[in-house]
Amino acid sequence: EESQDIKALQKELEQFAKLLKQKRITLGYTQADVGLTLGVLFGKVFSQTTICRFEALQLSFKNMCKLRPLLQKWVEEAD
């Protein structure tokens, strides 16, 4: 059922947002740094506010889903 899928996805997004924040802090990056690095990787800079709202799960579900693969890549590249 679709609502189950969405619930599962939301849970996954929550966990990912936590992971992103932990990783960012561990590596000593600011939210603005992450936004700028996305610009380098994908040619589209994201504001500190956007990263902040992603981490706080304050973006729309659709936006969270759109941003996630980009931030996933950041997490992979950041090591």
Rank of each mutant, 00 (worst) to 15 (best):
E1D: 11
E1F: 14
E1I: 02
E1A: 08
S3V: 15
Q4H: 11
Q4S: 08
D5T: 09
D5A: 10
D5S: 09
I6S: 11
K7L: 11
A8T: 15
A8L: 07
L9H: 08
L9C: 10
Q10Y: 12
Q10C: 04
Q10D: 10
Q10I: 06
K11A: 09
K11E: 11
K11Y: 13
E12V: 11
E12Q: 09
L13E: 04
L13V: 08
L13C: 01
L13F: 09
E14S: 06
Q15H: 08
F16L: 10
F16E: 05
F16D: 05
A17T: 14
A17G: 13
K18D: 04
K18R: 08
L19R: 07
L19W: 09
L20G: 01
L20A: 02
L20W: 01
L20P: 07
Q22F: 15
Q22K: 13
Q22G: 02
K23W: 00
K23N: 00
K23F: 00
K23G: 09
K23E: 02
R24L: 00
R24C: 00
I25G: 01
T26S: 15
T26V: 08
L27A: 02
L27D: 09
L27C: 12
G28M: 04
Y29K: 11
Y29N: 02
Y29Q: 13
T30F: 03
T30I: 01
T30S: 13
T30Y: 08
T30C: 00
Q31F: 12
A32L: 01
A32C: 08
D33F: 05
D33G: 07
D33Q: 15
D33K: 14
V34T: 01
V34P: 13
V34K: 12
V34G: 04
G35T: 02
G35V: 01
G35C: 02
L36V: 12
L36I: 15
L36C: 13
L36K: 13
L36W: 15
T37M: 13
T37Y: 09
L38G: 01
L38A: 07
G39E: 04
G39M: 00
G39Q: 04
G39V: 00
G39T: 03
V40M: 10
V40A: 15
V40R: 15
L41P: 03
L41R: 06
F42C: 13
F42P: 02
F42W: 09
G43R: 03
G43C: 04
K44M: 06
K44G: 06
K44D: 08
V45T: 12
V45K: 13
V45Y: 13
F46K: 09
F46L: 14
F46D: 14
F46S: 03
S47M: 00
Q48P: 13
Q48E: 15
Q48C: 03
Q48F: 06
T49I: 00
T49F: 05
T50D: 14
T50M: 08
T50C: 07
I51P: 05
C52K: 15
C52D: 14
F54L: 04
F54K: 02
F54P: 01
F54H: 06
F54N: 03
F54M: 03
A56W: 01
A56G: 11
A56E: 13
L57I: 09
L57N: 15
Q58D: 11
Q58S: 07
L59N: 13
L59I: 09
L59V: 02
L59D: 03
L59F: 07
S60E: 09
S60Y: 00
F61D: 02
K62H: 09
N63Q: 08
M64T: 04
M64G: 02
C65H: 00
C65L: 14
K66C: 01
K66F: 12
K66A: 12
R68S: 03
R68K: 09
P69Y: 02
P69H: 08
L70R: 02
L70P: 06
L70C: 09
L71D: 00
Q72E: 15
W74E: 10
V75Q: 08
V75S: 10
V75P: 09
V75A: 01
V75K: 11
E76S: 09
E76T: 07
E77L: 10
E77N: 15
E77K: 11
E77G: 10
A78W: 00
D79V: 13
D79A: 01
D79H: 13
